[in-house]
Every structure is written in structure tokens, then in C-alpha cells.
Design a protein around this nucleic acid. Structure first.
Length: 565
RNA sequence: UGGGGGUUCGUCUAGUGGUAGGACAGCGGACUCUGGAUCCGUAUGCCGAGGUUCGAAUCCUCGACCCCCAGCCA
């Protein structure tokens, strides 16, 4: 029997680790790491890797390090380092005292490079970037050996030390591994180990003007940290022979690298380059725009870390290229919020309702359940009076079939309130409905009918006299097509941005209890969706609500199929 | 036409020689003071062709298609 999703995951990576433990390959140790480059914000794809690496460590009583792969100061920034630390923590993971930087190993890496030079396994090359590219060969033709390939150890040592000393301009020389220019694996054609970059580094300052390349750095960093299982994405599969080569030459400890398929999600893009483009070109307000698939964007949108973790566990891990339906993410978000988000009432597009037979000055306080899924969350009192607002969408002058909310002459229940019946529709000179005059049944207080009569619908409301104004930001999918990358590379992905991915509405009315909510607080607007108070823009005197995700909307589905016919 | 990976419902993913299962999405129904939640039911799948075998998603052979690699990016 296959394990159900709640049992221990049985993906190929865990299977491999179990086998390693059985054979005592690493002495029973399991030590993973999450190695981001601090050149952008973390996104849901990184979350998959984080949940995998930290999750495996937890499961196998092992450890997981956080290590910044900071080998390229031109692209990296402390802003990114800080955001990454915050995001991994927020997701619920901790690396104890094991926060490392590849740059922590620059001295060691330099010594190893000297060692390789001394062994005749590395050389300083004077080729320009263009020459180097030309001589690398192609996918089908072998490369050409550099004329500098056979310099003496002494000359290489001298040149490399002078590279470090800053004697040569950027791009003028590199240190290359001497492997095989004819290798069918392009990574083995004398890869560059060091390049000259006279730039200061966010972590090492101005100490270095030569910086090691990722391939050289990464495998040795994993080795230094005694990582047992180096989990990475598929595109590094054919870098593995190079990693093995460095480690073998230097006679260093070998972690086991395991590659898995990165996450793609429908209706969004995942590459840091494209996300950066969305930010820089102003398609979104920043890395934490609630429409972004970034951790910070999702957090600001109101998504919980638990929902993200559940999602990452549910999608599984394999080597197939895959694009997960964003509907699964939305499902995980609803599932989590349903359990924990307190319910409140709010009206997005208010239409005035006057209860003609309700005492004009009377105010009652209705007891409302805070979360029907969790009794321990208790109840609250919500004011009720003659003057109310309901949502415009909950009334139709000419109701279509199967629409069973309010309509002329029709009776519905106000949630936790009374049964009301629409007696009169008041319009302005433009024909716009401005008020509904309704009668209420005093016998139905709390929403219960003593005579047992049924009502087709229950709708939400707020007291017009007590309501609090709010700005609501309705977020939707960022792109209007499942695959914004398309089949045609000439069509920019920005062509597919959903023009309705953000709708701001300003005259929303929410129940008074929201006045004391804090930025980031999440709740369900009954019958509408899950929302949170925007952590940047919401103020006590100007509430800003972000829609995290809608509720499942069966009526919308019926309506859509009605419209098709 | 070099090398490295991959191909199981619409989408993810199990299955490792013995009835192809789960989740999401879809469809249908029950229930409901959220057209929410919940519950039940249901259709759809092993890339193809050969072979081995009592028996193949699984093993073998041949083929097709997809992804990655020609940064002094990671």
C-alpha cells in the first residue's frame, strides 16, 4: 500500500538516504543545507527546497545549515541576505548556529587553488572572455587547449598571487582547472575557477579582488561543512563530475549530491531574473507585492507558513519536469485558513438596507460565532440596527434561475440577524439602486424561525451606523494564462500579465471589531474570502485589507455555466 | 547529428514482476444560519513498437518526444 500523504514521505531522495543509513555510509549522519545566492528574494520554488532540506534533517534527526552562496559580489546584496534569513525563519525553520557563507571559506579555497596549481592541475589563463568562449568548442565539437595551458607551476603561482594582489585588470586573466578540453561534458573543459573582480563584497568587504566561481566553491563548501546529502536541482546534474574531480584531486570528503526537479507553478513565473524584471519595470510594487510568488509577497498577502509547508509536502519530489496547478496552492491556503481564521462580516460593495418596521433608535448586539471550525475561538457581539449595508451582489432585481439571495418580495436570512423581506427598491435618477426597503420578522432573532420556515439564503451585513470604512485590495492571479512563458520566445511574458490582478475598492464597510485588528491579522470575511490587514499600508484610521484568496464560490460556477448557455 | 536527465489520469505524485492508488482540478449528489466547511459518488492515465514471462508501468531491444549544458552567473 502506498503511504498516504500524511505519512512519512517516500520520495526517491528519502529512499536514498535510508539506504545510506542502512549501509552506514555516513555513519548514520544526515546533514543537509539550503544554499541560496543572495541575489533576490526567496520564492515558493525555494520553499520547496527549504522544506525538503530542513524537513529531511528533522525527519532523520540530522542537521540543516543555511549557507549563502555569495561568490559573485556584482549581483549580491545585504538586503537579500536579510530577507532570506527572515523568510526561512518565518517558514518555521532554524539553523541554530550554523549560518554560513561560502565567503567564509575564501581563504581555504585560495589555499586549495594553490595546491591544485602546485599539482599542475590548475593554470592562469590570459585569454579574454571572448577568446575563451571561442575556444571552448561547441556541443558537438571539442574545445581548443589554451596557449597558456602549459605554463610552469612557478609562473602560475606567481601570476595567481599577483591576480590576488590586484596587479591585473578585471577580466584580463582567470585561474582555470586543467581537465580536458575534449570532454563531451562542457563543464569539464578547463572550467574557470577564479576571476578578477575589483569589487567589494557584502561579507568580506575589500579583502579580495579575485572571486571563486560557483562550481569550484560549492562542492568544497559542502565538503567543508561535512554535508552528507547535497540536494540540488536538475540542471546541476552534469556538474557532478566536476565536483567529484575537484574533491578527488584535493582528496576531500565527498557528500552525495542528489538532484530533483525545480518547482514550476501555473499562472506565475518563478525565475529570479523575471521576478526582478517585474519589480524593476514596475509591474508590481516590489518583491513583497502580494501578487508575487515570493515568500515575502505571499506573507504580505496573508498566506500562512503552514499552508506553504503543506503545499510543498503535498507536491512531492521527483525528477520529472513539472508544473503544479496553482489551484493546489490555493486549496492549501484555504484549508489552513479555514481552520484558524476568525470570521467577521464585511461588505465590499455596499447597498443600503433600511428595515422599515425596526425601531429607529434601537441597537441590538448579535452573538456571532468566531469560527465554526473551532469552538474555542468563542463568540463576539456585533451591533445591529435599522440601517444596514449588504453586498450589492447579494441582491438581484431580476434574479436568474438558481439565484437564491435577496430579490423583490423574497425573504432571506441576515446571518446571526433576522429574516428580512425586500419590499421596495429605491433608485436614483440614473436608475441605479440606492436603497432596499425591507421588513424584518421580529420572531426570527438570531436567524432562527420559530415556525420552522426555511429561507433559501443567508447573507452577510454590517450596521451602517457602526461600520468601519476600509480599503480592500482584491488580488488575483498575476498572469491570465497557465504558462506565461508560452511557446514563442519572442513574445515577452509580460504580455500575459493579468490586468485585473489587483482591484482596489475604497468604500467597503466592515464590522466594528476590525477597528482593533493589527497589521498582518488574518480573517475570513464570511461568504467572501480570506483577508489580512496589509502590513505596510493599513492604519487604524484607514484599514487596508488584502484578499488572500476567495472562498470556493459555487454560485460563480453556476453563473458561469448559465452564461455559457 | 556530443553529453546529462526525463516520459503513469487535465495537473502533481505512488507503484520497483502479481487487481494502476492518492491529491488537486472536473462532474454529480447529500448536508448546511457562510452557495463556506464537511461527506459521498463518478469519469479520465502507464510515450510507441517489439520481446522475455503464467503474468510487465516495472525486465530487455529499438524508436519517438521533452528538459538541461557552449557565463570570467548560480
Amino acid at each position: 500500500m502506498p503511504d498516504s500523504e500524511n505519512n512519512a514521505a517516500t520520495d526517491f531522495i528519502r529512499a536514498l538516504i535510508r539506504k545510506d543509513n542502512e549501509t552506514n555510509r555516513f555513519g548514520g549522519r544526515v546533514h543537509t543545507r539550503f544554499p541560496p545566492e543572495p541575489n533576490g528574494y526567496l520564492h515558493i520554488g525555494h520553499a520547496k527546497s527549504i522544506v525538503l532540506n530542513f524537513g529531511i534533517a528533522e525527519e532523520f534527526n540530522g542537521l540543516c545549515n543555511l549557507r549563502f552562496d555569495d561568490t559573485n559580489p556584482s549581483k549580491e546584496d545585504t538586503e537579500y541576505i536579510e530577507s532570506i534569513i527572515e523568510d526561512v525563519h518565518w517558514l518555521g525553520f532554524d539553523w541554530g548556529d550554523r549560518l554560513f557563507h561560502a565567503s567564509d571559506y575564501f581563504d581555504q579555497l585560495y589555499e586549495y587553488a594553490i595546491e591544485l596549481i602546485k599539482m599542475g592541475k590548475a593554470y592562469v589563463d590570459d585569454l579574454s572572455p571572448e577568446e575563451l568562449r571561442q575556444q571552448r568548442g561547441t556541443l558537438t565539437e571539442p574545445g581548443i587547449e589554451s596557449p597558456y595551458r602549459d605554463r610552469s607551476v612557478e609562473e602560475n603561482l606567481d601570476l595567481f598571487q599577483r591576480m590576488r594582489a590586484g596587479e591585473f585588470p578585471d577580466g584580463s586573466r582567470t585561474l582555470r582547472a586543467k581537465i580536458d578540453m575534449k570532454s563531451p561534458n562542457l563543464n569539464m573543459r578547463d572550467p574557470v575557477m577564479y576571476r578578477i573582480k575589483k569589487e567589494s563584497h557584502p561579507h568580506t568587504g575589500d579583502k579580495w579582488c579575485i572571486y571563486p566561481m560557483y562550481d569550484y566553491t560549492h562542492c568544497i563548501s559542502d565538503s567543508i561543512e561535512r554535508i552528507t546529502h547535497s540536494i540540488c536541482t536538475l540542471e546541476f546534474e552534469d556538474h557532478r563530475p566536476l565536483y567529484d574531480w575537484f574533491l578527488d584531486q584535493l582528496n576531500l570528503y565527498h557528500p552525495q549530491q542528489i538532484e530533483f526537479a525545480r518547482l514550476n507553478l501555473s499562472y506565475t513565473v518563478m525565475s529570479k531574473r523575471k521576478l526582478l524584471q517585474l519589480v524593476k519595470e514596475g509591474y508590481v510594487s516590489g518583491w513583497d507585492d502580494p501578487r508575487m510568488p515570493t515568500i515575502s509577497g505571499m506573507r504580505r498577502r496573508g498566506v500562512t507558513p503552514e499552508a506553504i509547508r503543506t503545499f510543498c509536502e503535498r507536491i512531492g519530489v521527483a525528477k520529472n519536469d513539472s508544473t503544479v496547478d496553482i489551484a493546489l496552492l490555493e486549496y492549501c491556503i484555504r484549508e489552513d485558513l479555514n481552520k484558524r481564521a476568525p470570521r467577521v462580516m464585511g461588505v465590499l460593495d455596499p447597498i443600503k438596507v433600511t428595515l422599515t418596521n425596526y425601531p429607529a433608535d434601537q441597537v441590538e448586539y448579535m452573538e456571532c460565532i468566531n469560527n465554526p471550525e473551532d469552538e474555542s475561538m468563542g463568540t463576539r457581539l456585533v451591533p445591529f440596527c435599522r440601517d444596514l449595508y449588504i453586498d450589492r451582489d447579494d441582491f438581484r432585481e431580476d434574479p436568474p434561475p438558481k439565484y437564491y439571495r435577496l430579490a423583490p418580495g423574497r425573504e432571506v436570512r441576515l446571518r446571526y440577524g433576522y429574516f428580512i423581506k425586500c419590499e421596495e427598491v429605491v433608485k436614483d435618477e440614473k436608475g441605479e439602486i440606492v436603497e432596499l426597503r425591507c421588513s424584518y420578522d421580529p420572531q426570527t432573532r438570531g436567524g432562527f424561525a420559530p415556525d420552522g420556515r426555511k429561507v433559501q439564503a443567508t447573507i452577510h451585513w454590517v450596521s451602517a451606523r457602526h461600520a468601519v470604512d476600509a480599503e480592500v485590495r482584491l488580488y488575483d492571479r498575476l498572469f491570465n494564462t497557465p504558462n506565461p512563458l508560452g511557446d514563442d520566445e519572442n513574445v515577452p511574458f509580460t504580455n500575459f500579465i493579468n490586468p485585473n490582478s489587483l482591484t482596489i475598492i475604497n468604500n467597503c464597510k466592515v464590522e466594528p471589531s476590525l477597528a482593533s485588528a493589527k497589521p498582518g491579522d488574518r480573517f475570513q470575511l464570511e461568504r467572501v474570502g480570506y483577508f489580512c490587514l496589509d502590513s505596510k499600508d493599513s492604519r487604524p484610521d484607514h484599514l487596508v485589507l488584502n484578499r488572500t484568496v476567495t472562498l470556493k464560490d459555487t454560485w460563480a460556477k453556476i453563473e458561469a455555466s448559465l452564461n455559457k448557455k
